[in-house]
Design a protein around this nucleic acid. Sequence first.
DNA 1: TCGCCTTGGATTACGGCGCT
DNA 2: AGCGCCGTAATCCAAGGCGA
Length: 335
Amino acid sequence: MSNITIKDIAQYAGVSKATVSRVLNHPQAVDDKTRAIVQKVIKEKNYRPSVTARNLSKRKSSTVGVILPKVDNVFFGEVLRGMIHVADKNELTVMCFNSDDSKKKDLQTLEIIEDHRVRGLIYVPAVPYEKKEERKALNKHLKALDAPVVIMDRDIGLPVDGVFFDDSKSMYNATKYVIDAGHTKIAIINGTQERVLARQRQEGFSRALEEAGITVPEEYIMLDDYSIQSAYRMTKNMMKLPVQPTVVITCNNDTTKGFLEAIYEGGKSIPKDYQNVSLDKLEMLNILGIPYSYIERDAYQMGKKAMEQLINRIAFPDKSYRHIIIESPFIKQSL
DNA sequence: TCGCCTTGGATTACGGCGCT
DNA sequence: AGCGCCGTAATCCAAGGCGA
């Protein structure tokens, strides 16, 4: 089943390849009659130009690379959907990779992407990229792409475009809501502090407490790797404390799940025994009608914005880089 | 083993033709 | 001479074939 090429169409229509190409790309430059014939043949033969050949000829690729840390996380699923929506409209193809949040895989993936000569890259860095040499190596890889890069979700301080949520602010707001509702025994499950996002979230949390003159016991601050398992384990420990918190703030989908698993296993529930404030909506809780409050991050929007920013950068490579900050509202269901 | 075609499919600069 | 229309040929890059 050999593919139909522009040459075939030219032959059938009795014109040259150039004319077929013009019908496709500059129709006004072709006589009405000729154009009609060519278009008819194109339709009959169901011809579509080869993207590879077009890329070769135009010296530019039409694929953009995307590296996500965890594609099985619904948050990044939504992000990807937003990206593809915008890419489709701009005749770009998304080539998506999963890094499993590993720096090693990150760098390997960047090489593969380089081999593919992509037009641009949207990149969610694995965490954490704190060491200077690591960031240097990373930057070298990004430069080697010779294509614009948009960093997403995690600001690791590189001078490139980026799209982020205002995690510090939204966590501050959420904590303030909790305090205003009269709570003082507030616990948090967050990531370890070498992670940029975890730091920002912790900062917002602490600031709100400080402003209200509230101090919480050290044991209420539970920091680990954002996984279900660690959240589960830390919650189990928390439940042994003599004085229990009234609110637990969980800083991502998985920590919310781990937290819920632990308390339900212990015969406790929300919102009866603990209130829960979650960063990100957990669809299942809404479906089950279990009241919790959450910071609603619009992941779809983030994906869209990142792709738009990349396309913009492709069009205007020389403008100075820009960071887009997306605000995320607090949805109050209990407290 | 080394350089030198050729191949794949599309785009486009350039120039030729016929006509006013 | 200038314009509209169209064809020729060069070009993009990587990989494979070929002769030296």
